[in-house]
Design a protein around this nucleic acid. Sequence first.
DNA 1: CGTGTTTGACCAGCGC
DNA 2: GCGCTGGTCAAACACG
Length: 251
Amino acid sequence: MKTFQVEGLQAQLECLQRENEGLGLMLETVSRKYSMLHQAYHRQASNKRLRPEVPAASERSQVFVKTDPRDQSLKVKDGFQWRKYGQKVPKDNPSPRAYFKCFMAPGCPVKKKGNKTYVQVQRCVEDKSYVVAIYEGQHNHDFDPTAAGQSISSSCGSPATSIPFPLLDNPFRPTSTCIALDLSLSGSDLQNRRNPTAAMHDYSTSNDHGNNNRRIEDYVASLTKDPNFTLALAAAVARSIKTEHPKPSPP
DNA sequence: CGTGTTTGACCAGCGC
DNA sequence: GCGCTGGTCAAACACG
């Protein structure tokens, strides 16, 4: 029984380590791109002043979503309903770029330029298993958590994993369309809405070892069943790496 | 038959 | 002004 539990935990750990490696790679790519963009921005800024009528960068947000590389649909299941209205093959990326409009609410998919709400999806050049979704505009309605939950699943045992991942320190600062993550939000039921760290502390400080096996089993089971845990873990890892490598503050 | 997707054409912005 | 590129439109098509 205990052996089975240990093996299960080891499998969980390996799974998380693999995810951590992937996230590290992703963050490295993002950091590299950020540095390039930052340098380019400084070069531009030193040459000429930015036009004040440039659209507000805060209206854009970028999200990395891990998918099955075999899945070519480029669909982003984030709780909103998107309708594809176009596809292009950009010059800098052989993978097609798809354009989706939100049609969840009648007034949301405003076609008027400058006030549109759409998502642009394209496979990452460095890692084809990731798609990059660029959200533009703001929704005037709530999102559907059940639709998001269908695709956002645990990385273990799922053929296609979706991890909406807001780019940290993105010069195009994420907007309200970005999915906010926090470890404190982990947990699918009332009990698990506690801070997981506190729950772990409860376990480690408890003297009732007869019930501990059961408790940790329940806890692990609840975590693996909870899609928010994977999301929160990704954010926590990103935050951790970010803390270790603080970026230069943008101008 | 209704709805969603595909895809070629068109348009606008930008750099030269 | 011209050409290139990205974004959008809309007719054709596919599918349930």
